[in-house]
């Protein structure tokens, strides 16, 4: 068997929820441990490094704000990929993945908004402005809440998955808008200083804690996402079993 088809088989093996659960149980302790290690180092660096000569101590807010903002966009991108998985490949775990990611993404977006506001007050002199960056991230937050509400409103995943996937894909247009809002429009929010084609323009003193915290937040996201996917699979099993129980109880009543 060629290496390629082996890789494809491995990937489609994951489509079996039982195998996914086994893999999740094996992976989660390691992922959680690694996340904790990165957070310890990241938090230590966040407070051990020097403050900014202009911003003073408030620069430390960046080590939470920026990773949370990155993750809020990455989470939505994961959901968009999952939506493609639902619509194009009909991967059975794609809808599970998308549904499990929404509350996590909402939390990261909330964090990005709140910490941004707490950074804006001392640095800009205002908690909030309706500039393009802040507004587009606020729209992202509303989209997460909307998707969560939709997923709850339609009980049957078989019916909600397609509607939800189409909505996720339509909403994906917001992600490049968020990313490039600081270049396309005149915003109070600063333009990118790390993810730039010409390399980061940020001082290494701030870059290191930022990178470690970004890795920690990314690991946290994957740990929580896999655990939430496992919960969602279990939830669907419970629903299916209850339906089965109700059906067999009905059949039992008729034969009596």
């Amino acid at each position: 068997m060629s290496e390629n088809s082996l890789a494809i088989r491995k990937f489609s093996d994951l489509a079996n929820p039982t195998r996914f659960l086994a893999l999740a149980d094996r992976l989660l302790p390691w992922l959680a441990g690694l996340t904790a290690v990165f957070f310890v180092v990241g938090l230590w660096l966040s407070f051990a490094t020097e403050g900014d000569y202009q911003q003073g101590e408030t620069v430390r807010i960046m080590y939470v704000h920026v990773p949370a903002a990155w993750l809020s966009m990455m989470c939505y991108s994961v959901m968009a990929l999952a939506a493609l998985g639902t619509l194009v490949w009909r991967h059975p775990l794609a809808d599970v993945s998308s549904r499990a990611a929404a509350p996590i993404g909402a939390c990261f977006t909330f964090l990005a908004l709140v910490t941004g506001s707490l950074w804006g007050k001392p640095m800009w002199g205002t908690w909030w402005v309706w500039d393009a960056r802040l507004t587009s991230v606020f729209v992202l937050f509303l989209m997460y809440l909307g998707l969560m509400a939709l997923n709850r409103a339609i009980d049957d995943p078989a019916r909600s998955s397609k509607v939800s996937a189409v909505l996720v894909l339509v909403g994906f247009v917001n992600i490049p808008i968020i990313k490039f809002s600081v270049e396309w429009w005149n915003t109070l929010h600063q333009p990118a200083s790390v993810m730039r084609l010409d390399g980061p323009t940020i001082d290494p003193e701030f870059l290191w804690p930022l990178i470690v915290m970004a890795v920690a937040f990314t690991l946290l996201f994957f740990t929580l996402h896999i655990a939430a996917m496992r919960n969602e699979i279990l939830r669907r099993r419970v629903t299916a079993l209850r339906r089965l129980a109700a059906r067999s109880a009905g059949r039992g009543a008729r034969t009596k």
Binding site: T58, R60, I61, V114, T115, L118, P122
Partner: peptide
């Protein structure tokens, strides 16, 4: 205070 509020909420 802004820094600690941020980390606290996070």
């Amino acid at each position: 205070a802004y820094v600690f509020t941020s980390y606290g909420i996070a």
